[in-house]
Design a protein around this nucleic acid. Structure first.
Length: 495
RNA sequence: GUCCCCAUCGUCUAGCCAGGUCCAGGACACCGGCCUUUCACGCCGGCAACACCGGUUCAAAUCCGGUUGGGGACGCCA
């Protein structure tokens, strides 16, 4: 059986965005499932807009997501000779012709058509029937020419069978003669893309529905070049809440893959979320391991309906799609602790809070602590923010619980140091013992244990809420707990 | 405007191709409850949709037609 070969061909004119990442993901899944190959091809023929920063961003983004490729990255500009050769072949075979109409002339025609008939028009075919004589005459005048593809003059419609949409038909008469080579001799996307796909022996082209009109034209190109047609699969698009196509340009960082890395998302959580946008397994399963997803994936279960990426700029709760946050939370609290540990390590390192002992003598403590605090977290960033007090003595006290749990009870200024001494005296610093001592003291002072406990939590962790207090106390360790409870004057002094 | 694609809860979607088991199922979000010295997690429950009109049929979310609505494309961009 023929080897499955798919490709991801981004144009390096901006960072990798989630729509592109989803396209890459689907191609990757398809390749993996069929033991095929994924080819990464950078389509950099737009010299004015292509940048090295974009190339790096795209590659970084794919690597972070865990989407690996088998060949490439190839750069389209390196194959310029192939593209030109193909154009010349089409010209020689009568499948294309030189067109001397200038941009200005065409622009003018478009404007007039729009004004008079209130409609857009395609190319009118002015140069399509130029005689050899006329052509050499114009060339002798030194006129610039583009090369246009000569759409076959046939009645009826052309068609291709789309793996997700079914048969797509379009009347030949609706397809205008499109440009394949610029007047400066540089071939255009429509041609380059096909030539590269033929050379790379691409068997399946999985891309967005926004390419559908390109596909109809490219199918004609395959035919003219005498190449076998690959299978096409057009995926639904991802839109914003206003139903506009999402783009880096109009939506900013929120659609950039980079944003999710910087905000502490787990790469696979993003993949898992993205694959559910426009595809579903036909069961209620929503969380997939890498291997499960590779096995479950299929083009036939791809949706034909565009999906909305649900976020509301300015709303902290909806800073990105809440479902994406939920998926991330799911992985955060269910994933293997060692794997989580590796991700958290990077966060700690970035904040200079990482200690090598977390990998050796304190490894068990480290993983157990992560297991204890992760239930309340949303992203990896929380480990160094809300969870900072577990890894550092330098942490902020949230003003809200400070007022509510500490400052509201001035007596705590004496009580907590008192508790510190009781803790210091313990030889068995366990959850059970520390709780006993704490309740004992509350009893003696005739206050509710909650007053002591909540004050303690705020002082020890800086947070309003957290895991069971006496588990926290054990995780923090006797020394830290005692020290933090002893020195609370500064909290009251500041207030 | 022309061509192409699409139409189920606020969002992601199942069901549609092979009509009845669907007064439409799951998830997120939201609301309520349980649990809890806190807050989460977890568990239980609730709110909430077949765009509209017509046709076919004993029977339509499902098939057909139309309307409306949405999206995409219409570059010497990719």
């Amino acid at each position: 059986m023929e080897e499955v070969r798919v490709r991801f061909p981004p144009s390096p004119t901006g960072y990798l965005h989630i729509g592109g990442a989803r396209t890459a993901l689907f191609n990757w899944l398809f390749a993996k499932q069929h033991n095929g190959k994924l080819i990464l091809r950078i389509e950099d023929t737009d010299e004015e807009r292509s940048t090295q920063a974009s190339i790096d961003g795209i590659i970084d983004g794919l690597q972070w997501l865990g989407i690996d490729w088998d060949e490439g990255p190839y750069f389209q500009t390196e194959f310029a000779a192939d593209h030109i050769a193909a154009a010349n072949r089409l010209l020689a075979a009568g499948h294309a012709y030189k067109c001397f109409c200038t941009k200005e002339e065409l622009e003018k025609k478009r404007e007039t058509a729009l004004a008079e008939k209130k409609r857009e028009v395609g190319y009118d075919g002015t140069c399509r029937h130029l005689s050899a004589e006329q052509i050499s005459e114009k060339e002798a005048q030194g006129l610039d020419a583009v090369i246009r593809f000569k759409v076959p003059e046939r009645p009826g419609t052309m068609f291709y069978d789309d793996e997700v949409l079914g048969r797509i038909e379009r009347a030949y008469s609706e397809i205008e003669d499109f440009v394949i080579v610029r007047s400066n001799g540089k071939p255009l996307y429509l041609l380059c893309n096909v030539v590269d796909d033929i050379r790379d022996r691409i068997t399946h082209i999985i891309r967005g529905q926004d390419h559908m009109t390109n596909t109809t034209r490219q199918v004609l190109l395959y035919e003219a070049l005498g190449a076998k047609l690959p299978v096409f699969a057009h995926m639904p698009l991802t839109l914003d809440l206003q139903k506009r196509k999402i783009s880096k340009r109009s939506h900013g960082e929120i659609v950039a893959v980079q944003f999710y890395r910087d905000r502490g998302f787990i790469p696979w959580a993003l993949c898992n979320f993205l694959c559910l946008l426009g595809w579903n397994p036909g069961t209620d399963q929503e969380f997939f391991s890498r291997d499960e997803l590779i096995e479950a994936f299929s083009l036939s279960r791809m949706s034909r309906v565009n999906s909305v990426f649900n976020f509301k700029p300015g709303d902290p709760k909806f800073f990105t799609d809440p479902k994406l946050i939920a998926v991330n939370e799911h992985y955060l609290r269910t994933m293997d602790l060692e794997q989580l540990g590796a991700l958290v390590r990077r966060e700690l390192e970035a904040e200079h809070l990482w200690e090598p002992a977390y990998e050796t003598s304190r490894r068990d403590w480290f993983l157990a602590t992560l297991g204890m605090i992760r239930d309340r977290f949303h992203t990896l960033k929380d480990f160094t923010a809300a969870g900072r007090a577990y890894f550092s003595d330098s942490y902020d006290i949230d003003p809200k619980p400070l007022a509510k749990n500490v400052l509201k009870f001035p007596e705590l200024r004496d009580w907590l140091p008192l508790l510190a001494e009781r803790f210091a005296a313990l030889t068995d610093f366990s959850a059970l013992e520390s709780e006993r001592v704490c309740r004992e003291l509350a009893d003696e002072l005739a206050v509710k244990p909650g007053t002591l406990i909540n004050g303690m939590r705020t002082v020890l962790t800086g947070q309003l809420a957290g895991p069971s207090m006496f588990d926290v106390v054990v995780a923090l360790g006797q020394e830290r707990v005692v020290a933090r409870l002893r020195h609370i004057d500064r909290l009251f002094a500041a207030a």
